[in-house]
Amino acid sequence: MHCWRDAQAFPQHHVGGPIHFKPWFRIRLTERKSAALECMAGLLGRPHSGHMQIQKDRLTVQCKRTDLRTDSPTRLRGERGRVQEDGQQYDCLTYRRLYLPPPRHPDDLMGPGLFHRKYNAFGPTTVMPSFHGKCARVTRLMGIGTKALEIHLLRRIQLRDGEIFRNFDELSRVVQEIDEQVTPEQQQQQEDGTEESEGHGWQSPAQPSVGESGAAAAEEQPVPFGLPVGMRSSDQNYPRTCRMCFYGVDIDPFAYPRHCCPGVFILFDEDHFGFIWPEEKYFFWYGRVQDTFQNVEAPSPQAFLEMLKDIQSSFIF
């Protein structure tokens, strides 16, 4: 019997560590009959029959149970829907193949992997960083929160021995000044259709990052880190030192004009990063997921980029 596990969002006390899983459906193999799919979702938790359709890079599970919507964990690349067949209502869950970024390039700020953060009673949010020339992306895969962060690797913010974090007004001023430079540039690139060629779009992650290298990040001496007075955070157990900061934006890349909220991306170390959102006076941070995954290499850089675009376009909240 083969059992597929689904990422289940449980409340956690610490960022990092493994992802918690629960069985979502299983495939039962018998000697006399062909393989049968059993759905294990719902409030009652009893296995019940379902139907599976397999297409390229995705599979869809259909179930007639009606209590699934009241027990709806956030799924790693899962989408919920309903279909009508023969007068019956079916719950549908569509799963899409997830690729991790290519092997680390020396210029990348951190190695490939998944990261998650504590998010109050709804459990952690899982994201995936990737590097694309002049910018880096942090794409949400599971949970509630930002759809994506775009980090401008050429817009580094000087730490000043951590002094920048002790004055919220000064931090906001620095972010605002950079934003006033970047926003007109990107608007012009969008109008000219040159955004991708300039390094702010979905470029291949195979090319080296332009700017600070991973080696430089490792050599940077840590400086004290603390949140400015009045800054909120759902998790106060964040690292107390950091290595680098960059201008970044919380974006909805498929809105037009693109909706962006500027902020500060903070690299703590190889396994932790954070983002300060001055407009809302809010800070959130992520720790590396310690699980290991097999067979997650993308067949090509283009396949990885297409997956990222597909993830972005599928989110509705």
Rank of each mutant, 00 (worst) to 15 (best):
C63V: 12
C135N: 09
S34H: 04
S233W: 02
V264R: 06
F315Q: 10
P101D: 01
P11T: 09
H105S: 15
F254N: 15
I316Y: 09
G248S: 02
I164G: 12
V15R: 14
M1E: 11
R173C: 09
V15P: 05
F273K: 03
R58G: 06
P184T: 11
H132P: 00
Q84V: 13
G193R: 06
Q236A: 10
R160P: 12
V296S: 02
G123T: 11
L109H: 13
F293R: 00
D192I: 05
F10P: 00
F268N: 10
P101E: 00
V296M: 08
Y282K: 10
V264E: 08
H259K: 15
G113C: 07
L93E: 13
L149E: 04
R75I: 01
P239D: 02
Y95I: 15
G230H: 10
R117P: 05
V15L: 07
V210E: 14
L98V: 13
T70M: 13
R240L: 05
R58L: 14
D179R: 08
I54R: 13
P299S: 02
R155Q: 15
L44M: 06
P257S: 11
M307C: 00
K134A: 13
Q294T: 04
R32T: 10
P208G: 06
Y282M: 06
G199R: 01
R137H: 13
K33H: 14
Q55W: 09
F293W: 02
V15T: 13
K64M: 02
V15G: 11
N237F: 13
E220M: 08
G193I: 08
E280D: 06
L267R: 06
Q158L: 15
A216D: 03
L109E: 07
F317C: 10
G263Y: 10
P262Q: 10
E220Q: 08
H20A: 13
T66P: 00
E212L: 15
E219Y: 01
G211C: 14
F168G: 03
L76C: 05
A206I: 10
I178L: 15
R288M: 02
W202N: 05
I151M: 07
Y99M: 07
S172P: 04
L76A: 07
A41D: 14
T94L: 05
F284Y: 03
